[in-house]
């Protein structure tokens, strides 16, 4: 998440009247995976987001988890099936239809 995105969000929240009460570092860090995994409902998500936006101690923690996830996704996500596998699968299915 870029600094500009954080600022935009902070401004948006301020315009809407500040939003909900600030959660603790413990609460925000406990929810970091659910937040990054997109598993939080709108209300809690905004609370967690608001905490990470303003907490200098917790923000690097969020970045660390993001870096980790990018590394995992990059490493495994780039793996492609071997050439010809699709054709072999199709052949297998066609043969099973015949048999």
């Amino acid at each position: 998440m870029s600094l500009l995105e954080r600022l935009k969000r902070l401004l948006g929240r301020a315009r809407r009247g500040g939003g909900s009460e600030m959660i603790s570092c413990e609460q925000a860090l406990s929810a970091v995976y659910e937040y990054l995994d997109g598993e939080l409902e709108a209300g809690p998500r905004e609370q967690v987001e608001a905490h990470f936006d303003v907490c200098a101690r917790c923000y690097p923690h969020l970045r660390l988890e993001e870096s980790f996830r990018i590394a995992l996704r990059g490493a495994s996500g780039s793996v492609q099936s071997p050439p010809g596998l699709r054709e072999r699968v199709m052949d297998l299915i066609a043969r099973s239809e015949e048999g």
């Binding site: 413990e26 609460q27 860090l29 970091v32 690097p60 923690h61 970045r63 660390l64 870096s67």
Partner: peptide, 23 residues
């Protein structure tokens, strides 16, 4: 989670707090 703070973060504090090394 009893300890919400990732222990790794303590190790990386002051060295690479945002975990850039992962990439």
């Amino acid at each position: 989670v009893v300890d919400a703070v990732n222990p790794l973060w303590r190790s990386l504090d002051g060295v690479d707090p945002e975990g850039a090394f992962f990439r």
